[in-house]
Design a protein around this nucleic acid. Structure first.
Length: 424
RNA sequence: GGAGAGAUGGCCGAGUAGGCUGAAGGCGCUCGCCUGCUAAGCGAGUAUACGGCUAAUACCUGUAUCGAGGGUUCGAAUCCCUCUCUCUCCGCCA
């Protein structure tokens, strides 16, 4: 959520930023409503001031044994007016909030301006895509061939966009989760968290999934709760409604969770394999930082995510998303894209974002600066560290052998009981 | 699921026959004094949001906030109703 005062002071700048995010006119009625609110507020507060003073007067008169009836009657009469104005203000504030909650974050000045992913900027590449001397298979063929992925039975259990992992496949998924968590906790200084997989609507509002993207989520029937679409939601909301001390910042957290997404509107995209599922595993990185260090921390966080791909020796590139391609809450985002032979292209496997104070304002996460200045909103960052299912897919494809077997990356072997390769 | 207790400021904790309590006291924190270092001691200060005034996120000023929402009243942290959460006991359960 943007700061209303900031919008009031720079409406043209905000409008221009929204245009870059393909959301022109989102601000439309805001200024009018905002002005309306302030004038109503001025009126009602004046009347309340009168009521407060008069009520005290009544108390004094009564104490002295004097008649206060006349004054009481006067106050009684303004009561209705206050009620009426308060209701109007409540309505206006609801309208303002509706607008504010649907406005995306303002992109950082270093973000390339553009309509879509074509305006993204590649920052760097790591590793060389492997040259195969045989026709490589896609993971959706490799998996069933090795009997470690079972799409048909998954459909029997749960329908489309679900996968059953079996035997060494299930073990590989678990190995990757543990490997990621160990690296981030052991080498990058993140605290491991194991959060609930269901959260309240307030949490979803806090990180920006609601109210705009309700159709992307799985809601729990009969409850005001949702399945987490990413661990970013519970991790960031851990600090909701809290005031932190600057000396305790930055705070690094990592968590494994399953993630649940309705994938509405992505019919026909990535229909084969485990790239786009209703349920997938992810290890997430979240940072809560002071306002002045978040961009530095974004670079570090991105490198933390990159490192697990390096350790697995999976070729990838880092892309800076353009204004038109960024997520709703983000001010700046780097995507990590891993090389996928089946796509003959790089495929997103991580998204690392600095949300600045956008989520903090929604979730009311603040900190007390060490310098004793006034309380400020923290900055929140999140990044996949990284998507587990897509990592498994990348391993299967990049490490496949001509005989159909798959070599286990060296770094993962200790997590696989020393297994060197999965074969039929 | 049944019975009971409770939710107050960064923390702990007062405050119910409704009024001058944004809220005692303590801790913590900040600044100053004092002390050969440390500790102790002394003094002062220390909520947030939204308005008005401002160059100001500085003063000053107004309104609101004692779990949330509603009600009674001239006036509610204090009374009434609903909800949420926490704790204790019983039951059930991986």
């Amino acid at each position: 959520m943007l700061d209303a005062k900031m919008i009031r002071a720079n409406p043209e700048m905000v409008e221009a930023a929204l245009q870059n995010r393909n959301m022109p006119g989102a601000l439309q009625n805001f200024l009018k409503l905002d002005e309306n609110r302030r004038s109503l507020l001025a009126r009602v507060e004046e009347i309340k001031k009168f009521r407060n003073q008069a009520s005290q007067e009544v108390g004094k008169l009564k104490k002295q044994g004097l008649n206060a009836e006349e004054l009481m009657e006067k106050v009684r009469r303004v009561g209705d007016e206050i009620k009426e104005l308060d209701e109007k203000i409540g309505q206006v504030e609801t309208d303002i909030e509706k607008i504010l909650l649907n406005i995306p974050n303002i992109p950082h000045s270093s973000v390339p301006v553009g309509e879509d992913e074509n305006a993204n900027v590649e920052m760097r590449r790591w590793g060389e895509p492997r040259q195969f001397d045989f026709a490589p298979l896609a993971h959706w063929d490799i998996g069933p061939n090795l009997d470690i992925l079972d799409f048909e039975r998954a459909a029997k259990l749960s329908g489309a966009r679900f996968t059953v992992y079996k035997g060494w496949g299930a073990r590989l998924e678990r190995a990757v989760i543990n490997f990621f968590l160990n690296i981030h906790t052991g080498q990058h200084g993140y605290q491991e968290i194991f959060p609930p997989f269901m959260v309240t609507a307030d949490c979803m509002l806090g990180t920006g999934q609601l109210p705009k993207f309700a159709e992307d989520m799985f809601k729990i029937e009969g409850r005001d709760m949702y399945m987490v679409p990413t661990a970013e939601v519970p991790l960031t909301n851990l600090c909701r409604e809290e005031i932190l001390e600057e000396k305790d910042l930055p705070r690094y957290m990592t968590a494994y969770t399953a993630c649940f997404r309705a994938e509405a509107g992505s019919h026909g995209r990535d229909t084969r394999g485990i790239i786009r599922q209703h349920q997938f595993n992810k290890v997430e990185l979240v940072k809560i930082t002071a306002a002045d260090s978040s961009y530095e921390e974004l670079e570090k966080l991105t490198h933390d995510a990159e490192e697990v791909l390096q350790l697995l020796e999976l070729p990838y590139r880092v892309v800076l998303l353009s204004t038109g391609d960024m997520g709703f809450s983000s001010a700046k985002t780097y995507d990590l894209e891993v090389w996928m032979p089946s796509y003959n292209d790089y495929k997103e496997i991580s998204s690392c974002s600095n949300c600045e104070d956008f989520q903090a304002r929604r979730a009311n996460i603040r900190y007390r600066p060490a310098s004793k200045e006034r309380i400020r909103y923290v900055h929140t960052l999140n990044g996949s560290g990284v998507a587990v299912g897509r990592t498994v897919a990348a391993i299967l494809e990049n490490y496949q052998q001509e005989d159909g077997s798959v070599v286990i990356p060296t770094a993962l072997r200790p997590y696989m009981g020393g297994l060197l390769k999965i074969e039929r």
